[in-house]
C-alpha cells in the first residue's frame, strides 16, 4: 500500500471499516507511525460519540448477570509465593494477552520494550535507570498486574521498578515496594505513581530468589505490608 494512502486509513480504522487484511496492515503501520496513532485515537473518540446516536433500550438484566458471572469465572489465578503467607491474586497475564490479541487492538497493546525505548528517548527515565536498562548484565523481570519490569543488577543486587501508566496513588496513600524473601518482607521505598512512567530505585537489595511486590499503604509507609499487592514481580532467580 502506498505510504500516503495508508495515512488516510485512520478514519476507516476508527469506524471499523477495514477488512481483515487492511486492518492487519494498518495496525502494523500504527506501531511505527506516531502521527497515525494520534489521528486514530482522535477519530476513535469521535466515532464512539456516534454510539450515542443509537436508540438505547435497557439491556436484559440477565445479560448483566451473565457478564459478571463470566468475569468472576475468569478471576485471576492465585499465585502462591515461596511461603504460604504470601498468596497473592495477580492478573492472569496470559488471559490479558489473549484478550488483546483477540480484539486486535495492537494500538493499545504496544510492545512494552518499544514503549521503554520511547520513554528513554523522551528522557523520562533517570540516568541511573537508563544505565541499568542498558547494561547487559541486568535482568528484566516482567511484572504481574502492571505494565512494567523489575530491573536487577546481579552484581550489586540493586533493583529498579519501571512501570508505565501507573495510576496515581489515592490521596493520603502511597505505593510501597517490598523485597520479599521467604517469610520476610523488607520495605524498599514509597512512591506515588501517576504520569507516563514511574521509575523507583529500590531501597533494599534484591537477592536471588526474592520477589518485589507493591502494595498501597498509608502515605507515610508501614513496617509490614497490610494490603494485597497491586503488582508483583516474577522471582529474581
Amino acid at each position: 500500500m502506498e505510504r500516503a494512502e495508508i495515512h488516510e486509513l485512520s478514519a476507516a480504522y476508527a469506524l471499523d471499516a477495514l477488512d481483515a487484511s487492511e486492518l492487519e496492515a494498518f495496525e502494523d503501520h500504527l506501531a511505527r507511525c506516531a502521527e497515525c496513532r494520534e489521528n486514530a485515537a482522535s477519530f476513535q473518540a469521535v466515532a464512539s460519540e456516534l454510539a450515542y446516536e443509537a436508540e438505547a433500550p435497557a439491556p436484559p438484566q440477565a445479560l448483566r448477570e451473565r457478564i459478571l458471572a463470566d468475569a468472576r469465572r475468569e478471576q485471576p489465578k492465585v499465585v502462591s509465593l515461596p511461603r504460604r503467607r504470601w498468596a497473592f491474586p495477580v492478573a492472569a497475564t496470559a488471559a490479558v494477552a489473549a484478550g488483546c490479541a483477540a480484539v486486535g487492538l495492537a494500538f493499545w497493546a504496544a510492545d512494552l520494550s518499544q514503549q521503554l525505548d520511547e520513554q528513554r528517548d523522551a528522557a523520562h527515565l533517570s540516568e541511573e535507570a537508563v544505565a541499568a536498562l542498558a547494561q547487559a548484565d541486568t535482568r528484566r523481570i516482567p511484572l504481574d498486574g502492571a505494565n512494567g519490569v523489575l530491573v536487577v543488577d546481579d552484581e550489586t543486587g540493586k533493583g529498579w521498578l519501571v512501570v508505565l501508566g501507573l495510576e496515581e496513588a489515592p490521596s493520603a496513600k502511597a505505593y510501597e515496594a517490598w523485597v520479599i524473601e521467604g517469610d520476610a518482607a523488607v520495605p524498599a521505598g514509597l512512591f506515588s505513581g501517576g504520569g507516563v512512567s514511574t521509575v523507583v530505585e529500590l531501597g533494599a537489595p534484591v537477592p536471588e530468589g526474592a520477589v518485589v511486590a507493591v502494595t498501597v499503604e498509608e502515605a507515610g509507609g508501614v513496617r509490614q505490608p497490610t494490603q494485597q499487592p497491586v503488582f508483583i514481580s516474577g522471582e529474581a532467580a
Partner: peptide, 14 residues
Amino acid sequence: LAVWRSAARFVAER
C-alpha cells in the same frame, strides 16, 4: 469480557 481481560493494557493518556 474484552474490557475485563485487557483493562491492564488500557493507557489513560491515549
